[in-house]
């Protein structure tokens, strides 16, 4: 069973557009939204926009307000203040107009376990106009569930429920698909398929909002990400932008480590990153024994190498290592995880 991602998702979706945000229409707009529950601020004023065909990642540790935000997007929870627009319709004031453009899975894809997959889809199809049996068959084929669709949902594995959830979300040919932790319960192969599937959907013009605490996932499939912690957005931007904010590390290895470090210290444009501030994948460092991690402008690498060579220091390796989103995230949300 695989996501048959080559299929067109629906005749209704907008024509393919560039996945950049600047050129396209705004599908989802969140404006200064806050939420207080029993006097506690859960969400403290978050704003962001998602354009057509964009894959938007929503990152945060557990308890940071991801699911609360998603529930507000789909009218399960009313914001205390602020507004949410989907395709120009205010979600709380015009839920019917706004939600017809949305397909979503909030947390787990919970379907009626005493119905078959097909009966579930029929149930949700009846809640929206213009969805016929042909459309149901179409989404079933898209998620590749043809052979199990007439079995009761209680016999499904978590992965199959996830597929059925996605089928349900796609029924109404949405312009915005909201997936909450979509990789939960999928094996590595399933995750890879899902990633390709999401890409295909976006290429056909659908916008995707994907929440996750697995940063590597988001990094691999999203155009832009927002990072949320304790109910506040720490950053919103393209993956590259966020990574470049942090700057790449330049890692040196010398035949004589002490001498090398001494020279580097003399150079003004080079700063050696102390161990506790390094946010580099440990598996990368393990392959580089005795590495000296520095932070410096990339255009100065050449003359730094020259300088070191002149001083008679043997350079065994120089390499640039970008911090992963995960590392970036840890820097930004420091302390949050420990709580």
């Amino acid at each position: 069973m695989a996501f048959a991602a080559k299929q067109p998702i629906g005749s209704n979706v907008a024509a393919p557009v560039d996945s950049g945000i600047s050129s396209s229409e705004v599908v989802l707009s969140v404006q200064a939204v806050t939420k207080k529950i029993r006097g506690r601020s859960i969400i403290r004023g978050i704003s962001f926009d998602i354009g057509a065909g964009e894959i938007f990642g929503f990152l945060g540790p557990n308890g940071s307000g991801k699911t609360t935000t998603i529930r507000m997007l789909v009218d399960l929870i009313r914001p205390t203040s602020g507004e949410i627009y989907i395709c120009g319709h205010q979600v709380q004031r015009e839920p019917e107009e706004a939600l017809r453009h949305v397909g979503c899975i909030v947390e787990n894809p919970e379907m009626y376990s005493y119905l078959t997959g097909w009966e579930n889809l029929e149930h949700f199809a009846r809640m929206q106009e213009g969805i016929d049996a042909a459309r149901i068959a179409e989404v079933v084929e898209i998620v590749g569930m043809d052979n199990r669709i007439h079995d009761k949902v209680k016999t499904y594995s978590l992965g199959m429920r996830q597929r059925l959830g996605i089928a349900q979300a796609l029924l109404g040919r949405p312009k915005l698909l909201i997936l909450d932790e979509p990789t939960n319960g999928l094996d590595p192969k399933g995750i890879k398929e899902l990633r390709e599937f999401i890409r295909t959907l976006a290429e056909q013009g659908m916008s995707l909002f994907i929440s996750s605490h697995l940063l590597s996932e988001i990094q691999l499939m999203c155009d832009r990400v927002a990072i949320i912690s304790k109910g506040e957005l720490l950053a919103v931007g393209s993956v590259e932008e966020l990574l470049s904010q942090r700057g790449a590390y330049v890692i040196w290895q010398f035949d004589n480590r002490e001498a090398g470090v001494r020279i580097l210290r003399e150079l003004e444009h080079v700063s050696i990153v102390p161990e506790q501030e390094q946010h580099i994948d440990e598996s990368v460092l393990a392959l580089l024994p005795g590495a000296v991690i520095t932070s410096m402008p990339q255009e100065r690498i050449a003359d730094t190498v020259e300088r070191l060579t002149r001083s008679g220091i043997g350079i065994t390796a120089v390499q640039k290592v970008a911090p992963t989103l995960e590392e970036l995230f840890i820097t930004m949300t420091e302390g949050d995880v420990v709580e």
């Binding site: 009218d75 979503c104 919970e110 009626y112 949700f124 929206q128 349900q168």
Partner: peptide
């Protein structure tokens, strides 16, 4: 949890 699917339809 099916209420989440039910109430997020238009």
């Amino acid at each position: 949890g099916t209420i989440k699917m039910l109430l997020t339809r238009p």
